[in-house]
Amino acid sequence: MIADLPATLPAAEPLVDRYGRAISYLRVSVTDRCDFRCVYCMAEDMVFLPKAEVLSLEEIDVLASAFIRRGTRRIRLTGGEPLVRRGIIDLVRSLGRHLKTGALDELTLTSNGSQMARHAQSLFDAGVRRVNISLDTLDAEKFARITRWGRLGQVLEGIAAATAAGLKVKLNTVALAHENADEIEALMQFAAAGGHDLTLIETMPLGEINEDRMDQYLPLSRVRRDLAQRYTLTDLPHRTGGPARYVHVAELGLQLGFITPLTHNFCESCNRVRLTATGQLYMCLGQDDQADLRSVLRRANMGGDLNGNMAGSQAALDAALDEAIARKPKGHDFVIDRRGAQPAVARHMSLTGG
């Protein structure tokens, strides 16, 4: 269980980077571990972090609350697979106190769906109203090949359970040239039939995965062009706080998103930062620059002695946040081509958080 933490937060200056972008969205990786080994995300023989390097649930709560105090309005819990982290529902319940006070607008979660059937109702009861679930194919054999360890039926049960619990489900599909390029319309139809949104994502050059990313890469500019020949696509101004650009597909009544870090980057309006399970803050997904918030937190003992000098500890953390956000770059430098076989960023997506 997480110790009782303050429900209300003292006012503080918002976090704004040097380009005038207010940081209102925090993605928190609660674990680098996952029960899948998706071919575009990680190597099959992954070595995961030792427990001592991973933030405790209390430490995650303190850091997330510090961001909320500085103007963050949306938090997304990610991984790895967040639902394999022991005690994750306790963390969700604790962060949910900020929803009750109005300090936080939204608490969401990204999942591979494998554990969703067990946790969907608890997530809803804790204040979550929207989840993203990965679904790259509707073919069971292909699903096992893409995820290496996953079972399609388990994920479909998770999607159904989330819907039954009252959670709004957005399906995420990584577009893979030789795996699911011919399934995109089927996935659109599946999403529409279930009342879900669907977002397509270009594969990103993060981490060594024992695969050729050039062979995986499917430009979504081409996908959208092809879809526009068969469907009526209308651009939508809608934003969920993330990088997706949305269209309405008239024939299906579907909201379809495109996340395009390669063919059309989304940096100019980036309001996001990412906190890893080890307390490293990445100001940009596509850059290696980071700030070590774990050291600041443990030096101040904010996650252990909540009755100590909280004013001084908070000031130290505020200073670290100010320094980090001042270094947030204008954009990333993702590229995939035959000449650049090495990943643009060495760390895996599972470490940074999806």
Rank of each mutant, 00 (worst) to 15 (best):
T137W: 06
A22R: 15
V273Y: 00
H196I: 10
R86H: 06
E157D: 15
I201E: 09
H119T: 13
E53V: 03
R151F: 08
L351I: 07
L262V: 14
R274S: 03
M116K: 07
L135M: 13
E106L: 07
D17L: 08
P50D: 13
L317I: 10
E81C: 09
A228D: 14
P205Q: 13
R338E: 15
A126F: 07
I23Q: 04
A164I: 01
I201R: 10
R347P: 00
R245C: 04
R230S: 10
R222T: 11
K100W: 03
A162K: 01
V39N: 02
T352F: 00
R76Q: 04
G331C: 12
Q121F: 08
Q121E: 15
T234H: 05
V223K: 01
I201N: 13
R145Y: 08
L206R: 01
L49K: 07
R18F: 06
I146C: 04
L135R: 13
G153D: 15
T263H: 02
Q189A: 14
L227Y: 05
R37G: 12
I184L: 14
Q154P: 00
T8F: 04
R298C: 04
M283Y: 04
N307T: 08
E59N: 12
M46E: 14
R339D: 13
A162Y: 02
A311G: 02
L206K: 02
L351M: 12
H264E: 09
V47Y: 03
D288S: 13
R129W: 06
V296R: 03
S295L: 14
T101Y: 11
K168G: 04
F124V: 08
F266D: 02
C267D: 12
G80Y: 09
I259M: 07
T72D: 02
V62Q: 11
M204C: 07
R272C: 02
V54C: 08
M204T: 05
Y231H: 14
R85G: 06
P329I: 12
S114P: 07
G308E: 09
A192F: 08
V247A: 12
